[in-house]
Amino acid sequence: MRDLLLFAAAAAALVCAATAALHANPAIPGLLAALAFASIACWAGATARGLRAASDLTEPRHSFASVTASEPVSRAGWFGRAWAVALGAFGVAALVPLVSLGRRPIAAASAWTRGARLVTPEGVPVRADDIAIGGVATVFPEHRVGAPESAVLLIRVEDGKIQAPPERRDWTPSGNVAYSKICTHAGCPVAIYLHVYYTLYCPCHQSEFDVRHGARPIAGPATRPLPQLGLAVDREGFLIARGDFDAPVGPDSWDRPA
């Protein structure tokens, strides 16, 4: 009677193979395979339970030490220590080639240069009044869309809302302000802008940055402001960068130049 389960398992496995060959919805062969394995499990469990009648068996245990304390394994002494030093030296020497594996890091530079136009991921240049107030866009330097560490959030706030130190007063033409989109905490895109609070918000670890005050961190685990990209307007009315970011992009590391 119990052995019928084995036939059920075989039948389920065959139908599973057939449905897979016919490119059925993957849930069907999946469930059939589950049925086959469940049948085997039930058969084995029921059979094992049937064996339960006899009493438990025993087997002696023993301790593991094969050498007693009065019988030392090694009499090497000084000689053994010399060997240990020699082998250790070889071990250390073998680690040295590891150093050649990693390249000396060069601080990854962004693709922003003086005069580069801000373009959308589709490559369309952005004018100073293209973005509505409260609006936000991801932009890249022209001809370098998708370049690493170069994603920028371009935000438009009401003119005069930005509280900037004197040397940055003219970095935000017509309320357009630009910050690196790469979080200084762990490198996620700081993808959410809440215009009500003028804050940028990272969906990974919830660091918040104050857009009006140089994107300084105001909540969450980030410790450094998002680097700012100084903006200007060229003769044709398009937004351009004044240069590279004012600080290194992305999370800090041991080798980050101070």
Partner: peptide, 21 residues
């Protein structure tokens, strides 16, 4: 051997049901 076979079958059945549904 039978009990571990049952454990094997049960593990696969559970994983397949999860994956399929």
């Amino acid at each position: 051997a039978l009990r571990t076979l049952a454990a094997f079958g049960a593990t696969l059945a559970v994983l397949l049901v999860l994956a399929a549904t």
